[in-house]
Amino acid sequence: MAESGSFTLDDLREILRTCAGDAESVDLDSDIADVTFEELGYDSLAVLEVAAKLQNHLGVVIPDDATEQLPTPRALTDYVNLRLVA
């Protein structure tokens, strides 16, 4: 995960599956970058769990209130990558 300082959508897919599983109606392997987490079947608690896992594994601080501003996988991966570079 996040090798060479880059966190990818595939890395996030792996974490989504680990934390909250696959929603039956959503194909995480499709183009989900700009689909909201809600549309993907992940509620705010699931997104907080994903953020906690990212913090533990990557050392990227993601405040609870920041997750509300990260509605899509693309927004979250961009956020993480900005902090990995810093």
Rank of each mutant, 00 (worst) to 15 (best):
1 M>C: 10
57 H>Q: 14
28 L>P: 03
80 V>G: 10
26 V>E: 05
4 S>L: 09
13 R>G: 06
69 Q>W: 00
7 F>W: 08
31 D>N: 10
73 P>G: 08
50 V>K: 02
4 S>H: 12
19 C>Y: 09
31 D>G: 11
10 D>W: 01
54 L>S: 02
67 T>N: 05
18 T>Y: 10
67 T>G: 03
14 E>G: 15
44 S>W: 09
23 A>V: 10
9 L>T: 10
2 A>D: 09
8 T>H: 05
86 A>G: 15
53 K>T: 15
12 L>E: 03
78 D>H: 09
13 R>M: 03
37 F>L: 02
29 D>C: 06
73 P>A: 03
27 D>G: 02
16 L>G: 06
16 L>P: 01
79 Y>S: 09
6 S>C: 13
28 L>D: 01
75 A>Y: 00
58 L>C: 04
22 D>P: 06
31 D>F: 08
45 L>G: 07
54 L>V: 05
53 K>I: 14
51 A>V: 07
25 S>M: 08
6 S>T: 14
3 E>P: 12
23 A>Q: 05
62 I>L: 07
34 D>K: 01
79 Y>M: 09
71 P>M: 05
1 M>K: 06
26 V>N: 00
33 A>L: 11
39 E>S: 01
13 R>I: 01
71 P>Q: 14
22 D>F: 03
29 D>Y: 05
86 A>R: 12
26 V>Y: 00
77 T>G: 03
49 E>N: 10
10 D>K: 06
18 T>P: 06
67 T>V: 15
68 E>K: 03
63 P>K: 12
60 V>E: 15
11 D>P: 04
62 I>Q: 12
11 D>F: 02
52 A>Y: 05
58 L>T: 00
61 V>I: 13
36 T>Q: 00
39 E>M: 04
85 V>W: 02
79 Y>E: 15
75 A>F: 02
76 L>D: 00
62 I>M: 13
47 V>I: 09
41 G>N: 00
8 T>E: 13
69 Q>L: 10
38 E>N: 08
5 G>F: 06
41 G>L: 00
36 T>C: 01
31 D>K: 07
79 Y>L: 11
26 V>A: 15
35 V>E: 10
3 E>S: 15
42 Y>E: 08
76 L>Y: 02
73 P>N: 04
66 A>V: 11
21 G>S: 12
17 R>A: 11
50 V>R: 00
47 V>Y: 02
61 V>K: 04
75 A>E: 08
15 I>A: 08
29 D>R: 10
46 A>H: 12
43 D>S: 02
72 T>L: 02
73 P>T: 01
